[in-house]
Simulated scan of single mutants.
Amino acid sequence: IELELLADSRDLDLSRREADVALRLAPYTQPGVVARRLARVGFGVYASADYLDRHGRPDFAAGAPGQYTVLPSDELRQAPEMQWFAARTHAARPGLRCNRRQAALAAIEAGMGIGCLARYLGDGRGLVRLDAGPPPPARALWYGVHEDIRHTARIRALAAALAEGFAAAAMRLDPPD
């Protein structure tokens, strides 16, 4: 079985065969695509202890004045968790904008600012998860496949493996508070 994995922040069009299978944090609206909800992904606001020593804890009620934020690129800023984060940090200054979640994680770990990350990225890495009021909205992780190939052996095997893996990781993806 040959598989190719592409990690891209843009939505590939399954109906135009840009990919056989895709995972995304938004429901599929493309014709001819069969979708399945695989998991729930929780989010949190994080900073390094070093950053907090230098800048203090953010006052989210006031929009986090005097703080620096690590923000995603334009196409990811419309995500529900990033709009939630922007509303709580409107008085902060952008410290870094980046187009990859791993780059944002590295910047937050390096003390460049506070940022909103998926819990599976931020928890257990020595970062401080900050209380910014009501938690950010969680999002569903969707699996999509073109309806013409969903019954092929390799696609069924991949779908089963993904469902099993995400079920096993559920507590890490969206841990209870």
Rank of each mutant, 00 (worst) to 15 (best):
G126V: 06
R40W: 06
P176C: 14
Y120S: 07
G95W: 09
F85P: 00
D148H: 13
G56T: 05
A170L: 09
E81P: 01
A35R: 06
E109D: 04
R129Y: 01
T69Y: 00
A86T: 15
H90A: 13
W84P: 00
D74N: 13
A157D: 15
A169M: 11
E81R: 06
F85C: 00
C116K: 00
A103V: 10
A87I: 07
G113M: 12
Y28P: 03
M112G: 11
P72L: 02
Y68Q: 07
H146K: 04
R172Y: 02
D53M: 13
R100I: 01
A153M: 10
A92Y: 10
E109H: 05
V145E: 09
P137V: 07
A39S: 13
L162F: 04
I1H: 14
A160Y: 08
H151V: 13
Y51E: 03
A160M: 05
L6K: 06
A107P: 08
L121G: 01
A92K: 06
Y51A: 05
L6V: 15
A167Q: 10
D74M: 07
D59C: 09
R77H: 09
A86D: 09
Y46A: 07
L6G: 07
L14M: 10
G144A: 08
V33M: 02
E18T: 02
V33R: 05
